[in-house]
């Protein structure tokens, strides 16, 4: 190898370093990007946000729009890792970013009666403060069970499909269904199945095998009818099954955890409300992270 070739090679190496460093810099976020949340008081409130991969900070507390402040549950107690990418709060990682979450106690939210919409002020453990739209966060009152529905099974799969099913203990008539966040249905397709609703898809043969199969079944073949096409009231006999199947769209980048309410009456006329939990625990692919930056970055 001649000196000249060697020199040119060194030049190429310098260009490679410069170019890669430049590209890396161009990918860095100025501040964390928060997902849009739809939290209706069901389960732990999880705040999701995207940070740079090298960013080791985590959320300490959030000031909501109604003036209440909540401290995050600490996942970091007694935990130490040199690399931020392998912290306990990391949900997903890509070459440049991390999707992290912070959990907040629902009991505490109930006590403070948190009712938030839009911009919140988020404090990080490294002293950084970010103001960002985090969506809607509401507490909910603790409800008493009605004793009419028995949890049969529930399952969720990594392809964004999940379902919950119950059996009813007496004859009931379901008169309506309401969701606190109808807009989330842009992101999630839902189908409700009872023996009296249509017979498309898998017949309710019972047994766990049907459910496993249902998780991979084509959406059009999943049992039941889309929520918007259901004619109320729905009559159900004792021992009948009711199942809500949900399918998240691949470009869904919102975080939600809330309950859909089924209201109806029993045979002897007593009214009841039965909640169906609708929640996701976002885990993003690198493509979804890019989508999030595109939609919510530099607002």
């Amino acid at each position: 190898m001649k000196g000249k070739t060697f020199l040119i090679s060194l030049l190429i190496i310098a260009i490679s370093w410069g170019g890669n460093l430049w590209f890396y810099q161009s990918k860095q976020l100025e501040e964390p990007i928060f997902l849009e949340h739809y939290y209706g008081g069901a389960g732990v409130f999880e705040l999701y946000y995207l940070t740079n991969r090298e960013d080791s900070s985590h959320v300490m507390s959030v000031e909501f729009s109604d003036g209440t402040t909540l401290h995050a549950k600490s996942d970091y107690y007694g935990f130490h890792s040199e690399s931020p990418a392998y912290g306990p709060d990391v949900q997903s990682r890509s070459t440049h970013y991390l999707l992290k979450k912070a959990g907040f106690d629902e009991q505490q939210m109930r006590e403070l009666e948190v009712d938030h919409e839009g911009e919140a002020t988020i404090h990080f453990n490294d002293g950084k403060t970010v103001t960002a739209d985090i969506g809607t966060v509401e507490f909910s009152k603790l409800r008493e069970g009605n004793g009419l529905f028995r949890q049969q099974s529930s399952s969720s799969s990594s392809n964004g499909r999940s379902f919950r099913s119950y059996t009813v203990k007496e004859d009931v008539k379901i008169e309506s269904m309401s969701s606190p966040f109808p807009e989330v249905q842009d992101d999630v397709k839902m189908k409700l199945y009872t023996p009296s609703i249509g017979t498309t898809g898998t017949p309710d043969g019972g047994g766990p095998r049907t459910y496993t199969k249902e998780m991979d079944e084509e959406w059009s073949r999943v049992a039941g009818a889309p929520l918007e096409k259901i004619d109320f009231p729905i009559e159900m006999k004792q021992g009948d099954r009711i199942r809500l199947t949900m399918q998240e769209k691949p470009d869904a980048i919102r975080a939600y955890s809330y309950e859909i309410d089924l209201t109806g009456t029993t045979k002897n006329g007593t009214p009841f409300t039965q909640p169906f939990l609708v929640s996701n625990h976002p885990q993003f692919t690198p493509e979804q992270m890019e989508l999030l930056i595109e939609r919510r970055g530099s607002q």
Binding site: F6, S9, L10, I12, I13, S16, W17, G19, N20, L21, F23, Y24, K27, R93, S94, T95, H96, P286
Partner: peptide
């Protein structure tokens, strides 16, 4: 070595 040093910075921008 030249290859090694030229390719190394790509690790910043390629998946793990």
């Amino acid at each position: 070595h030249l290859f090694y040093y030229a390719l190394l910075p790509f690790s910043m921008n390629l998946p793990e």
